[in-house]
Nucleic acid binder design. Structure first.
Lengths: 346, 346
DNA sequence: ATGAAAGCGCTAACAG
DNA sequence: CTGTTAGCGCTTTCAT
């Protein structure tokens, strides 16, 4: 397909220095005269040289690889916006850090998911792992992974926060805040469609909702809770059921935007007007919340930043920052759009 | 973090054979007695050995890397569903082929996008490249890339089909088919919101629409054409303008689902009912088309399969299949949902 | 059918 | 500041 690529020795010869010096220049090492440095870079450009990453990894014993692991199925495209946002954020930070990103999708429910993750580290020689929910909630998995390489967690449960670095919003507060928003609008009768129960971060959102309800002097047990799974479909099914009841809730809070979109869809099908007849809220503030009609009131989560911070934490760790595991809370924000309003306006 | 990993020599010693034999077993090579083969595999398992991919690449001179290149910005998440589908399809086939996928996002409008793509090949030692639109339409880029490594194109324009392998639906026929669907419903007055003009595959959809209109005895020049860019936003803006005209069209065809979602959103904002007052169609059949209300009539494109076939073509090429460039047409299908119906029903 | 030897291109001590 | 010397773990001739 093409001629032999120039090697580091070609550059050394071309610029009249030793191979080690070229290596130093390439790696921004110390102890090289500026003059020589320039000469070497000139040779690099003129020969159109670029280091062979495989050779570098082998020699340095460091692959530079970071894996981003999602719990999903290769067949499905669950929460495309959610995963894309994380991936983009991770990719960008990897670029900055001079590392490479491997994206991996591991079946949610696979019994040997732990094995699959560990195999990924082993087989690819990954040096860092970004674990997303619900993997980031699993102390056993996190412990096993952390024994093999650096680990950073997206939205980890409190139980795993001591085991590895982590980034996330205060999910409980996020739930509390949306619920307060609805209470302020006058709502008193709520339903909450949860995410998969294994995703603890989403479960904490419900706790926040309950706290808000309590703080308003209402009975938190009166919040109807339905077990969803983050999908559009689960939003559809549960909302259909809820709206078939004798006294449907006036507001449905959903564990994420996809679920809320499903709820919205059912409301339309029944010719209800949102928010006059029913308020609906999501979580995440993915682009989906602006795409549906009416645009969703939701809780913003800075997903790209979170992934970037996770990669950054890994990079720090890999270059020898020896602190204990640190959890970084990033700010969330209730974004009020048109899917929420005062109840009974219809 | 952990002890030294076992190397091929450890396995050789453990199973009492030479290093070369182990390598043969690992690579399914010939000339190994079944008995020995079994013994080696047993050692591999018992030592929990796995090959070091970096060392293998270096020694064999083959990285096993395939890059999937998107024209987009790291900041934006354009067509998340579209890119996710392609990525998932490519990932799955890479798994089958024992190769690794590198996903790359190159700024659309970057003047040195060609350089960026070529640098990717050079710097990462990629052996194969999957190019998506509009990169797959650019003969200069494709030619330059094909000189460096194997290339496969997603939805290439006719002009690039002779330069590398390609996969895609018949876009012209897709446009024709949706338009026929609307004509059959009784529509006579159309608007078409295009994608970026550099994406030739989307432009061919418009040609198909025009052909359908002509074949119905209507003037194809009467189709109002608006220059969009595949985004939700462009759907919003153009639809707002269209519906402000004295005689708005009865049907708006969009270059993709995102744009159609934007059109839908405007219709809702104006309290028009879809499809009674206005029919709207998309293209791609991403999950978005089922998420919006009403669900979109659209043209299905088997994106995951397309990406898989592209990777497969690369793999064949890399293992020495010396045919000329082959373009594979995959089937499209009009999916009729509720965003299209007879005009004037409102 | 198997093994010995020679690198792949690079980084990393260690000498100067 | 700079070069010399060893490998990193694997595949690949080439003998046997």
């Amino acid at each position: 397909m093409h001629a032999r690529r120039p090697t580091i020795d070609d550059v050394a010869r071309h610029s009249g220095v030793g191979r080690t010096t070229v290596s130093r220049v390439l790696n921004d090492g110390p102890n090289v005269r500026p003059e020589v440095r320039d000469r070497v870079w000139a040779s690099v450009r003129s020969l159109n040289y670029s280091v062979n990453p495989q050779a570098r990894s082998l020699a340095s014993g460091s692959s530079g690889l970071i894996a981003l692991v999602f719990a999903s199925d290769l067949e499905a495209q669950p929460n495309s916006f959610y995963t894309s946002a994380l991936e983009l954020g991770a990719l960008r930070e990897c670029l900055v850090q001079g590392r490479h990103l491997l994206t991996h999708h591991v079946p949610q429910d696979s019994p040997d998911r732990k094995r699959q993750v560990l195999d990924l580290i082993r087989a690819q020689r990954c040096q860092g792992l970004v674990l997303t929910p619900p993997f980031s909630d699993d102390p056993e998995l996190v412990t096993a992974a952390a024994a093999q390489c650096a680990v950073a967690l997206i939205s980890p449960a409190p139980a795993t926060r001591g085991l590895a670095d982590g980034v996330g919003v205060d999910d409980e507060a996020g739930g509390y805040d949306v619920a307060r928003h609805l209470l302020a609008l006058g709502h008193r009768d709520f339903a909450y469609i949860t995410g998969l129960e294994s995703h603890l971060s989403a479960a904490r959102r419900l706790e926040g909702v309950r706290r808000a309800v309590s703080s308003h002097g209402l009975d938190p047990a009166a919040v109807r809770v339905l077990a969803g799974d983050f999908t559009f479909r689960s939003g559809v099914e549960h909302t259909r059921r809820l709206l078939g009841e004798a006294t449907p809730p006036t507001a449905i809070l959903c564990a994420n935007d996809d679920t809320a979109a499903g709820a919205l869809s059912v409301a339309h099908g029944l010719h209800l007007s949102v928010p006059a007849d029913l308020s609906i809220t999501g979580f995440d503030d993915t682009p989906m919340s602006e795409i549906v009609w009416p645009p969703l009131t939701t809780v913003h989560q800075p997903l790209k930043d979170m992934a970037g911070l996770a990669v950054n934490a890994l990079a720090r760790r890999l270059t020898g920052d020896g602190d204990g595991p640190r959890f970084e809370t990033v700010p969330h924000k209730v974004i009020v759009r048109e899917s929420s309003g005062p109840p009974g306006a219809g």
